[in-house]
């Protein structure tokens, strides 16, 4: 077996606070190949953004305690020097952020900010870097790029700003692209444009993409693999289609059944996940999801509230991992969950 392009192993990001240690990410592992996309789903505070920032080394020189291993092309990003990490940022690993307005400096032109990203890693003149920025703006579909390159971020629309951010991220041809909620701040039609653009560019650049989002719909369209995070840990991980069609973890079920749908049966019910996300300072004992789980009575004894389940292969395949004590999740899903969220599918069968 060859080593994967990106391999994250037992990544922990802990923040010491006066009240105790906040375990924002607590033992995250996944792998990713070039040209593939992994979707990391989770709600605010699930640790999805913290983990990706750690890959970029953004927690260096903060009070965060980062441990584990992040192997990018065989190099452990947690062990290399600050200067080596700096050389990788923007060149090998690039990032797109959620809100393109606040992610761009309001006082500099869009073009100069894109060109800056190029000049950091290439010893070229300002003029050449600007020409390259125009080229990238054109590539991401900004009309009249040679004029718009001198505009300031506030003169761009939301969608164009995100395009410009993508241009900035891809200008050095990175092999790993981290997209942190890239479309959350955008309107649906613009979101569709940006998602298509990202897929398009990924094909051209053969980059590995980490797509962080709370929107399962975006994941369904973009991701090859899906990793569901809850309270700093992976609770379900596997091939995207598999996870979305045969989820085995009650939290994933909850995510699927609490989101309304634009198509299908209008009699489908909206079943919220009760309660609130747990505190990362004092997570509940046992499975972190147990206080909100409506299926824990199906597990014998008090396993759910005392023992943290391991991330182990589920009932359907070796590569579909889940963190849950339930013995027969597939049956529960087929019989209890599916009829609620996709009644028309059940009827067809």
């Amino acid at each position: 077996m060859t080593t994967p392009f990106l391999s994250v192993r037992d990544l922990k990001v802990h923040f010491p606070t006066p009240d105790g240690i906040v375990k924002a990410t607590d033992g995250l592992s996944f792998t990713l190949e070039k040209g593939k996309t992994i979707g990391i789903v989770g709600e605010s505070g699930s640790g999805k953004s913290v983990s990706s920032s750690a890959i970029l080394g953004l927690h260096r020189h903060t009070n965060a305690i980062v441990s584990g291993e992040i192997l990018l092309d065989g190099v452990d990003l947690l062990k290399i020097s600050d200067e080596d990490m700096r050389r990788k940022r923007g060149a090998d690993v690039a990032m797109i952020f959620q809100d393109p307005l606040s992610a761009m400096h309001p006082y500099y032109t869009v073009g100069s900010q894109i060109a800056e990203a190029y000049r950091v890693h290439h010893d070229v003149s300002r003029k050449k870097a600007k020409a390259r920025a125009v080229e990238m703006l054109d590539r991401v579909g900004i009309p009249q790029p040679d004029h718009r390159v001198d505009d300031y971020p506030h003169q761009f629309s939301g969608g164009m700003r995100q395009r410009a951010m993508i241009a900035m991220a891809l200008i050095n041809n990175p092999s790993l692209l981290i997209a942190d909620e890239p479309t959350t701040a955008l309107d649906v039609t613009v979101q569709a444009q940006i998602l298509d653009l990202l897929q398009d560019l990924q094909r051209d650049f053969d980059a590995a993409v980490i797509m962080i989002t709370h929107d399962l719909g975006v994941i369904a369209e973009m991701a090859d693999d899906v990793l569901v995070m809850y309270a700093g840990r992976a609770v379900e991980y596997g091939a995207g289609k598999e996870i979305l069609t045969h989820p085995e973890m009650p939290y994933t079920w909850g995510l699927l059944s609490s989101v309304p749908d634009v198509a299908g049966d209008t009699s489908a019910k909206l079943i919220p996940i009760p309660g609130n996300p747990p505190s990362l300072l004092t997570p509940p004992p046992g499975c972190a999801f147990n206080p909100r789980c409506t299926h824990k009575d199906k597990v014998p004894g008090d396993l759910c509230t005392t023992v943290l389940p391991d991330l182990v292969p589920g009932v359907r395949s070796e590569t579909h991992l889940k963190r849950c004590h339930l013995a027969n999740p597939d049956a529960i899903y087929e019989q209890e969950i599916l009829p609620e969220i996709l009644p028309e599918l059940v009827e067809e069968r």
């Binding site: 953004l58 700096r86 990788k88 952020f97 606040s102 761009m104 990203a117």
Partner: peptide, 14 residues
Amino acid sequence: SEDYIRTATAKGLA
């Protein structure tokens, strides 16, 4: 603490 500082760092600026 602004987002654009994170962007600048993520670009690889010193």
